[in-house]
């Protein structure tokens, strides 16, 4: 038996919004420790890794490890049927071929349940080692979304250059070029507005704007985003999900052929 309850549907809606542009389907691996989803986008250029910790759910029961392959488009449709302040309970029997989403209104007067067929997904699971990155940038997530949107007008790709002074985002194409420089915040009054750079070595990497823009769909989940970079390895774009866990996007850099 698997059962996980959240007092508020909003967070689950935001999580689905953050992944559904990149992934059509995904396997939710459920265990005692929580729920994990790892999947590559269709073109295998980026990887999404979602972790939700069991102790942050309002109720969590997982008698045996369970892998539930879900169509994320269908899941998003079902979650649209929940009001933001509804309690959401996700339920599945062991070895079941369906999962049930139950929504309960705050006054307990409306209860709805939606059953969804599970899928057998043959997805490659990747081991992601803990890595020390040359540069780690923390910045307001809205600012990052804005920069990705603005620079995508100029080019398919964006160069991110990080030094200890700051981080520079650049794009150039037929229309012209754009550069946005952010200096490290000198006086941190409000932590969520700060730009903080931890640098071991300066890094310059190029990435596809299309994917960066897809990652910024997670902006409503967290005020801050963390970008971790080292030469010639995937960028990690991380959004924390309050005390519930995090969503990390990995993106392969563009390299000279």
């Amino acid at each position: 038996m698997f059962e996980a309850r959240l007092m508020n549907a909003t967070i689950l809606k935001k999580i689905l919004d953050a992944v559904k542009d990149l992934l059509n389907e995904g396997t939710f691996d459920c265990s005692d420790s929580g729920i994990q989803l790892q999947a590559m986008d269709n073109s295998h250029v980026s990887l999404v890794s979602l972790t939700l910790r069991s102790d942050s759910f309002d109720k969590f029961r997982c008698d045996r490890n369970l892998s539930m392959g879900m169509n994320l488009g269908t899941m998003a449709k079902i979650l649209k049927c929940a009001n933001n302040d509804d309690t959401v309970t996700i339920k599945a029997q062991d070895n079941a071929d369906t999962v049930t989403f139950m929504f309960e209104s705050q006054n307990h007067e409306k209860v709805s349940d939606y059953e969804m067929k599970l899928m057998n997904l043959d997805q490659e699971h990747l081991g992601i080692p803990d890595t020390d990155y040359s540069c780690v940038v923390r910045m307001p997530s809205m600012e990052f979304a804005r920069i990705c949107r603005d620079l995508a007008q100029f080019s398919e790709s964006m160069v991110i250059c990080c030094t200890k002074e700051g981080v520079k985002f650049s794009a150039s194409g037929d229309l012209g070029s754009a550069n946005v420089k952010l200096a490290q915040t000198s006086n941190v009054d409000k932590e969520e507005e700060a730009v903080i750079i931890e640098m071991q070595e300066p890094v310059t990497l190029t990435f596809a704007c299309r994917y960066l823009n897809a990652f910024t769909k997670a902006t409503p989940l967290c005020n801050q985003v963390q970008l971790s970079m080292s030469a010639d390895v995937p960028l990690v774009v991380e959004y924390r999900i309050s005390d519930l866990g995090h969503i990390r996007y990995y993106l392969a850099p563009k390299i000279e052929e």
Binding site: H44, V45, L126, G127, T206, Y250, K254, I255
Partner: peptide, 14 residues
């Protein structure tokens, strides 16, 4: 020309 490798080439299976 810049291109990108598959993300799975950076990580090990498992």
């Amino acid at each position: 020309i810049k291109n990108q490798k598959g993300i799975n080439t950076y990580f090990t299976a498992g």
